[in-house]
């Protein structure tokens, strides 16, 4: 019989190796597949710098224009809360930092765990709100595919199990911690094959649109 300890050991050991392999493999495969398609050089005489335009847009596109903010306020605010919350939880919880330290060889300061806890609740609520909006808003419901709900589910579960683990809501702790790690592993496996890839590809996308605009001397 597999005890919760064995389970935790499995998710921390072999399962994490598999998930890491698929995650890293999928990402580098997809990124190279995208970039290797290449593009034609622009032969028109530039009015500005592609480089500056591209770099600027990678950052500037994070701020919504006033006019679109008015019409899409809910999506923008909820998405902002979710993304910020998710990154705070991912990168500023000390146990997570330990993981990055093991990978990168260096760590950084974390936030108090109780603060992370509050942020997790807010992030979960934002995700929930985004799901309800996706189900209710005609455009989002119309556009949504299985992939969108899958991506939502794996993200939500990763956060939820993390929350449950912190609160020891399922006993024994090794089981809930194992479930949390497992849900993250599922997220990692799903990641390269769904829209979750936007985590990386948005930089390429913004670069391209920004570089084109920069070439034409337009500040996006």
């Amino acid at each position: 019989m597999m005890t919760s300890g064995d389970f935790l050991f499995w998710v921390r050991g072999p399962a994490f190796q598999i998930a890491t392999a698929i995650f890293a493999f999928g990402i580098s495969w997809h990124l190279l597949e995208i970039l290797s398609l290449g593009r034609k050089p622009d032969r028109s005489v530039p009015r500005g710098s592609r480089m500056l335009g591209g770099l600027r847009t990678i950052f500037s596109r994070s701020i919504a224009d006033k006019s679109i903010f008015q019409s899409s306020a809910f999506t923008i605010v909820a998405s902002y809360i979710f993304h910020l919350g998710f990154f705070i939880v991912l990168f500023l919880l000390v146990p997570h930092i330990m993981l990055f330290q093991a990978l990168l060889g260096f760590g950084w300061a974390g936030l108090p765990t109780t603060l992370i806890d509050v942020i997790t609740i807010i992030t979960l609520l934002a995700l929930l709100a985004l799901l309800i909006h996706r189900l209710k808003n005609p455009v989002r419901r119309f556009l949504s595919t299985f992939e969108d709900y899958l991506a939502w589910t794996v993200t939500f579960l990763a956060l939820l199990t993390g929350y449950l683990a912190y609160h020891h809501s399922i006993q024994p702790y090794s089981l809930v911690l194992g479930l949390h790690i497992l849900s993250v592993e599922i997220l990692m496996v799903v990641f390269p094959f769904t829209k979750l890839m936007h985590t990386f590809t948005f930089i390429i996308a913004r670069w391209y649109i920004g570089a084109n605009a920069g070439h034409r001397g337009i500040q996006l």
Binding site: H30, E33, I34, L35, S36, L37, G38, R39, K40, I68, S72, T75, I76, S79, N137, V139, R140, L143, S144, T145, D148, K195, M197, H198, T201, F202, I204, A205, Y208, I209
Partner: peptide, 17 residues
């Protein structure tokens, strides 16, 4: 189809904005 097209489709999150 070129790299920008691939990057754009890969990035869409169906937010409807």
């Amino acid at each position: 189809i070129d790299a920008p097209i691939a990057a754009y489709f890969s990035s869409c999150v169906r937010c409807g904005t």
